[in-house]
Design a protein around this nucleic acid. Structure first.
Length: 636
DNA sequence: ACGGCTCAGCACTTGTTTCG
DNA sequence: CGAAACAAGTGCTGAGCCGT
């Protein structure tokens, strides 16, 4: 990766000519030579060499200084030259000479600062201010302006007001490093946060968890594509491709369409739509059953699946990838077999694109050889070469129709749009009866919830896919990997959080209501009473919840195992043990299970060939089950 | 062989989660 | 808790595929 020379002189000490030629971003060629990508004087500061994320687009990796600061007027216009220079100075200073006490920001953050600064520039233009120092004494006028969303005229989203105001404070903090800045604090007795009235407290997680019913529908569709439809769709694609090789125009069309119809599709268009849904399904399966983030999914490469044997001989499947949050680190995730299937399908899916991208790479290499270093063409092809090389092993390859058919890893906005379209197309609904609005991060939360459910033993759906975690994988995760790949401990934290939440809600039902109990009433009676009279019920509930560990057996909740007391977990196999156990709780949610148990034992008893010991056992279990059912069915 | 349509990127903005 | 990083959303564009 490229490095920037740390200038010996601070920005304000540079002459205009010196400053103009200063590189702000650089890249390396194959020969190891550094090539300047952007200079201070450029209209666009392109930071592509510094932002590795595959899921970000080029446009998110650069600053375009041609900001429209008034209708028809741009920051790059001649009359705004001083303001442009001040803005560039400030922006560049944030990176090259960070605010005292702060770490050097990532380039993406620097770009975000410019975004937050834009409304200020517009306001300044509208007031005829040409320099930041003109703001002095008038900063408070800007406060209400900064609260308004420029596009809609409505108040800005939470956090943005503060973010826009904080930029002014930073203009003050950097004052000694800049020729033009805020000489005095914009609001001496306040901070951007207090001014905006947006305290950072009380943050809650907003990303929705996909409801169970919706997950089931989604999983059904996606798994069907990945396991059943994939071979047909992909082999048809390949067959068509082969049949039209070396043919063009209508000749190709005349072959393609009848063949597609012959193979069970409505036409060529239908086939490509199905191909896209197949790709969406792979994305969904991978995200849903591995819990990885969007940026991580899109950075997956071919061959990212590895097998491994646990000590007890269980086959483990690892998904290898990269985590970008706070630096680029190789990571691995434990995944169920369906994820491997989806990766294999994508490896097939990407093959034609892989061939194309290799062709593009050699084309770029040739063009680079023949062009003049430093020319715009040379720069552009250098960038395309770097990008293509980075993407050449990518799993989620696609093709951009409007940029010269460049092949590369799909962007997050494409994935996002495709996900939004997925539920309506397959008629997948949320609990409110409307189409579920799917987005990429929901999968992470949903995954954590389902894994927690699997661990608590009350997972109803998709058990075989989430259950792979239940064999106490926590140990495997934390005891660490021996290879270069780290495990994703954040995901583990997420799962634990989900588990705690679930446990709390289970206890909530037991303690806050008078739901009938078949067992556990003695243990809970006191607690129920305490809770009823407690002032702060919620915090008491949390306190109780954090002091015990629930284990789901399917037919009861067991709080005994963790303490090494009671049955030691045998109740998982011998349901009737829980009925009298001091550490068991049996409530309304277990009623169907107990009915099933009763039915089974009755059937067993009806069979004549059951020996006496067997009969005794069945009778014992049946009696207890009937007892449980009777208690749970008492009208409240 | 031509008009409609689709799909993915671009540009810009807002929103959310996690790090130190 | 503030800063940083990551994610989502939307109008627009246009190349070129698709199918009559």
């Amino acid at each position: 990766m490229s490095t920037l020379a740390n200038p010996a002189k601070p920005i304000r000490a540079l002459s205009s000519a010196e400053k103009a030629r200063t590189p702000v971003s650089m890249a390396k060629t194959d020969l190891g030579e550094s090539v300047v990508v952007s200079r201070y004087e450029d209209e666009i500061w392109d930071f592509w060499p510094y932002i590795p994320q595959n899921n970000a687009r080029d446009s998110e990796k650069r600053i375009n200084w041609r900001i429209e600061i008034a209708p028809g007027e741009f920051l790059t216009d001649h009359q705004h030259a001083p303001l442009l220079e001040s803005t560039k100075d400030f922006t560049w200073s944030l990176f090259i000479d960070p605010i005292d006490g702060r770490q050097r920001p990532r380039m993406a953050t620097v770009i975000a600062h410019v975004v937050a600064l834009t409304p200020l520039l517009r306001w300044m233009a509208s007031r005829g201010m040409r320099q930041f120092r003109d703001i002095e004494g008038r900063a408070l006028e800007y406060v209400p302006i900064a609260k308004i969303n420029q596009r809609t005229g409505k108040p800005t989203a939470k956090g943005w007001h503060a973010r826009r105001l904080i930029v002014l404070e930073e203009l003050y903090l950097q004052r000694e490093k800049l020729a033009d800045a805020l000489p005095t604090h914009p609001w001496p007795d306040e901070s951007g946060f207090t001014l905006s009235g947006e305290r950072a407290k009380g943050r809650t997680i907003k990303t929705l968890r996909i409801p169970e019913r919706t997950v089931r529908q989604l999983a059904e569709v996606a798994i069907n594509y990945v396991t059943n439809l994939a071979p047909h769709i992909l082999s048809t694609r390949d067959a068509l491709e082969q049949a039209v090789a070396n043919k063009e125009g209508f000749q190709a069309t005349n072959i393609r369409i009848p063949l597609a119809r012959e193979l069970g599709f409505e036409g060529s268009r239908d086939l490509s739509a199905e191909l896209s849904y197949l790709r969406d399904s792979c994305y969904i399966v991978i995200a849903m059953f591995s819990g990885i983030r969007d940026s991580e999914t899109l950075s997956l490469k071919r061959g990212c699946i590895a097998h491994d044997k646990a000590d007890d001989g269980i086959d483990l499947i690892w998904l290898h990838g990269t985590i970008f949050k706070t630096g680029i680190k190789p990571h691995k995730w434990l995944v169920p077999p369906i994820v491997e299937t989806a990766v294999r399908v994508m490896e097939w899916y990407r093959q034609p694109y892989a061939i194309q991208i290799e062709e593009q790479i050699s084309q770029f290499e040739q063009q680079l050889d023949m062009s003049i270093p430093g020319s715009t063409f040379h720069k552009r092809q250098l960038k395309r070469l770097h990008t293509a090389r980075k993407d050449r092993d990518g799993l989620f390859l696609g093709c951009a129709p409007c940029v010269g058919h460049l092949v590369g890893v799909l962007s997050k906005s494409t994935i996002h749009r495709r996900l939004q379209n997925f539920c309506p197309h397959f008629n997948i609904l949320g609990d409110d009866g409307k189409y579920w609005r799917l987005s990429s991060h929901q999968f992470r939360r949903t995954y954590a919830y389902f894994v927690a459910s699997a661990e608590l033993g009350d997972l109803h759906y998709l058990r075989e896919h989430f259950g792979h975690w239940s064999i106490d994988m926590t140990l495997l995760y934390t005891s660490g990997a021996s290879d270069a790949y780290q495990t994703d401990t954040d995901l583990l934290t997420e799962i634990l959080r989900s588990k705690t939440e679930k446990q709390e809600s289970v206890l909530h039902n037991y303690l806050m209501t008078d739901a009938p109990l078949a067992n556990g009433d003695i243990m809970l009676a006191d607690l129920r009473q305490t809770i009823k009279t407690a002032k702060n019920k919620q915090s008491l509930l949390q306190q109780i919840s954090s002091s015990i560990t629930l284990n789901g057996t399917g037919h009861s909740w067991c709080i005994g195992n963790a303490k090494g007391t009671s049955c030691g977990g045998l109740c998982v196999f011998e349901a009737d043990m829980c009925v009298d156990c001091a550490y068991g709780m049996i409530g309304p949610e277990h009623l169907p299970v107990w009915k099933e148990i009763a039915l089974q034992q009755q059937t067993a008893l009806d069979m004549s060939d059951l020996g006496l010991p067997g009969k005794t056992r069945s009778q014992r279990i049946l009696n207890k089950a009937l007892d449980v059912i009777a208690k749970l069915e008492i009208p409240q």
